[in-house]
Design a protein around this nucleic acid. Sequence first.
DNA 1: TATTGTTATACTCTATAACTATA
DNA 2: TATAGTTATAGAGTATAACAATA
Lengths: 150, 150
Amino acid sequence: MSEQTPSYAALRPSAVSSLAGELRLACMRISRRVRYESTDSIAPHQFSVMCRLEESPRTPGELAEIERVSAPSMTRTVAGLAERGWVERAQDPTDRRQVIVTLTDEARQALKDTRRKRDAWMAVRVGHLDPEEQAVLQRAAAILTKVANE
Amino acid sequence: MSEQTPSYAALRPSAVSSLAGELRLACMRISRRVRYESTDSIAPHQFSVMCRLEESPRTPGELAEIERVSAPSMTRTVAGLAERGWVERAQDPTDRRQVIVTLTDEARQALKDTRRKRDAWMAVRVGHLDPEEQAVLQRAAAILTKVANE
DNA sequence: TATTGTTATACTCTATAACTATA
DNA sequence: TATAGTTATAGAGTATAACAATA
């Protein structure tokens, strides 16, 4: 039997459970550290809404549903973003009850800066790992992304 | 050259950077999903303080410093925990200005329940992976834990 | 006089309820 | 009458400043 077994047996439930616990805790700790260290100028709820608007403009109602907050909360959040020049509001020409919220170029740049700061924290630590550990994480990254998106 | 190379070259800076970005994002998404799905009865700031008290009793001043919140905020948080029966406050016999905050057994049980719920979310997803993916994550878990603790 | 913790007050983000404008 | 969004008001959690008790 070689050191790297070419085929694998499925983990037993108890092993799945302890692996899940260890991974979950590590992900939450990393997330916490990244958030803490990156001293954002963008508040978490603002950041989250701005990410949604990156793909396409949306109405306040859609944003409230996606972010699972109340409509008045989203009105307030959008107002704050507009005040800082990160979104623009326009009336929907086909239904004048609706408002279309669009991200500004300035906001896209701010998002880019924040992500760069966050990635930098992680990059320093990944850079300190030895090559074999980096290779394991390269394979793990895709799997964790799949888990996160499930 | 075999499919699984036995020795590895260190990643170039650009590769470290993109790996870091992918890992960081996956960890933050998983963290967010876990927090969202586990519908805690314990608020995040309460949970965090309770975890600190799990190791040993502490004074409000120590807790405020560890959690990086103001002393009045910690007074309030501790008062809330005491009201729910999760902590008990006692005067320090050697310095009567100080208060010793201790976790109750009920709180320890509540922490256990919350962690079990969080781990369950992750365990379902890890259980869906194929055996080889699970094997990769088993090696990655230890590395991520090291990164989180750095 | 310095330190520990609390109370007083204000600001932010959240919510529900009531209201306006439009369909 | 129903829907999209806003305004009114209140409840948490945070902060700084002022205070009480103790060292």
